[in-house]
Simulated scan of single mutants.
Amino acid sequence: MAVPFILDTDSAQDDCVAILFGLLDPAADLRAITMVAGNVGFDRQVHNAAMTLAVADKVGACPIHLGCSRPLMRAWEGAEDVHGDGSGGLSMDVPDGMVSNEGAVDALLRMTSEEPGELSIVAIGPLTNIAAACIADRTFPQRVKSLYIMGGSNNGRGNITAAAEFNFYVDPEAAQIVFDAGFSDVVVLTWDPVTLTDALLPRLDYEELCAIDTPIARFFKALCDHTLAYDESVGVPGSTHPDSMTLQCLVHPELILAEAPYRVDVETTSALTRGYSAMAWDKFEATANARVIERADSAAFFARLRALLETHTRPVLPISGL
Rank of each mutant, 00 (worst) to 15 (best):
A136Y: 03
R138I: 09
R138Q: 15
F140H: 06
F140Y: 13
P141G: 00
R143G: 13
V144R: 00
V144K: 00
K145M: 09
I149R: 02
M150F: 14
G151I: 01
S153L: 01
S153Y: 04
S153F: 02
N154K: 14
N154L: 15
N154V: 13
N154D: 12
N155S: 05
R157N: 10
I160F: 10
I160K: 13
T161S: 15
A164K: 06
A164G: 01
E165T: 09
F166I: 01
F166Y: 15
F166D: 00
F166S: 11
Y169W: 15
Y169E: 02
Y169H: 15
P172D: 11
P172Q: 12
P172E: 07
E173M: 11
E173C: 07
A174C: 03
G182K: 09
G182D: 06
D185V: 06
V186C: 09
V186P: 10
V186D: 07
V186N: 04
V186I: 14
V187R: 15
L189V: 12
L189H: 09
T190S: 12
D192G: 01
P193R: 09
P193M: 03
V194E: 02
V194D: 01
V194N: 02
V194Y: 08
T195P: 02
T195C: 13
T197M: 07
L200F: 11
L200D: 03
L201I: 15
R203W: 00
R203C: 04
L204H: 13
L204G: 07
D205C: 08
A211Y: 03
I212H: 09
I212N: 08
D213L: 06
D213M: 07
T214L: 09
P215C: 00
A217V: 02
R218M: 05
F219W: 06
F220Q: 07
F220E: 05
F220S: 01
K221S: 12
A222P: 00
H226V: 14
T227Y: 06
T227H: 14
L228F: 00
L228E: 01
Y230R: 14
Y230N: 13
D231Y: 14
D231F: 12
V234N: 10
P237S: 09
P237V: 11
S239Y: 02
T240F: 02
P242L: 07
M245P: 08
L250C: 05
L250G: 05
V251Q: 06
H252Q: 11
H252V: 05
H252D: 12
H252P: 09
H252I: 04
H252C: 04
